[in-house]
Design a protein around this nucleic acid. Structure first.
Lengths: 139, 139
DNA sequence: ATGCAGTCTGTAGCCACTACAGAAGCAAGA
DNA sequence: TCTTGCTTCTGTAGTGGCTACAGACTGCAT
C-alpha cells in the first residue's frame, strides 16, 4: 500500500522509474558532481527528496535535447547560484542549437553521398561493385 | 629531393599526410586488425606499400561517410576474400543510410524544440527564464 | 525466520580515438 | 664521424557518457 511520499524520500530505483534515468547513471551523476550526495538510510541506501527528483529530470530533459554534461553543469551552476540572466541561458541554448544544425548539415551531405553511391549499384550477384570502387577512390 | 616511391615504402608520417589519418590512429587501426602489420626497417620503423595506402584511404573515406569500424571491417573482409556480391555491399550501405536518416530525424526534432524554447526567451537581464522553466518541467 | 527484490561499492568495458612519456631511429649537414 | 633535430617507437592512460558486471549487504513482506 503505502505510496512513497517525499516525507520518506525516494530510493534510487524510484528515481530511476520516475525519470527514466538508469540507476547506474544516477550514481554516475553523483560521482561527477551534477547530482548532490543524497541522505542515506541507516543501512546506507540512498534516499532522495523532491528537489533532487526535479534536478534529475532537468538533467534528463537536457540530455534528451542533446546538451553535453558540461553544458548542463553550466546551466545547473547558474540555477544553484541564482545569479544567471536569461541572456546567458539563451546564449548557451543558441550555441547548442548551432551545433545541432551543423550536425544536421553534415549528415545531409553524408546522406546525399550514400544515396548517390547506392543508386549506381546493380545489387547483382557479381563481385564488381561501384560502391566499393567509390570507397577506393583517392581523395 | 628523392621523392618517395613504393619501392622504398612509405613511413607512417607519409601515410598520415597522404590520407589525412592521424599517426596514432593508423597504429590503432593496426592494433584492431583493420590495417595489416606492415614491413619494418632494420631499426623497427613501419614501411607501408601502395596497397596499404589504398586500404587506409578506403577506411578514411568510409569513416567520413559514417560507417562504423565494424561495418568497415565487414566491407574489408568481403574485399579481402573477394567473395562478396554487389548485393551484400548494397545492403550494408542502405542499412547505414537508414541509420543516418534516423539520426537526421532525431536532430530535426531536437532543433525544433530548441528553436521553440529560444523563441520564448526575452534574453533580458532578469533572472527569470522560460528556457529553464521548460527544462524543469516534468516529462 | 525466510525469501527475494533492491541496493551497495568498486572496477572494467564500450567506441573511436587522442595524448602523453621516454626511448630509439633516421637523414642531412659540418 | 659526429651532431642536430625531426620522426617514429612502445606502452599506457584519458576522453564522454554511460553500461555491466561481481559479490556483498539492506529492506520489506509473508
Amino acid at each position: 500500500m503505502s505510496d512513497i511520499t517525499n516525507a520518506r524520500g525516494y530510493p534510487i530505483g524510484e528515481m530511476s522509474k520516475r525519470t527514466g534515468v538508469n540507476i547506474e547513471t544516477i550514481r554516475y551523476y553523483e560521482r561527477i558532481n551534477i547530482m548532490p550526495k543524497p541522505d542515506r538510510t541507516a543501512g546506507g541506501n540512498r534516499q532522495y527528496n523532491h528537489d533532487q527528483l526535479k534536478r534529475l529530470s532537468f538533467i534528463k530533459t537536457s540530455r534528451e535535447l542533446g546538451f553535453s554534461i558540461d553544458e548542463i553543469r553550466a546551466l545547473l551552476e547558474m540555477v544553484d547560484r541564482q545569479d544567471f540572466t536569461c541572456g546567458e541561458v539563451y546564449g548557451l541554448t543558441v550555441g547548442h542549437l548551432a551545433s545541432v544544425r551543423e550536425k544536421i548539415k553534415g549528415l545531409r551531405k553524408l546522406e546525399k553521398a550514400l544515396v548517390g553511391m547506392a543508386a549506381e549499384c546493380s545489387q547483382g550477384d557479381v563481385p564488381d561493385c561501384p560502391i566499393l570502387e567509390t570507397l577506393f577512390e583517392p581523395r
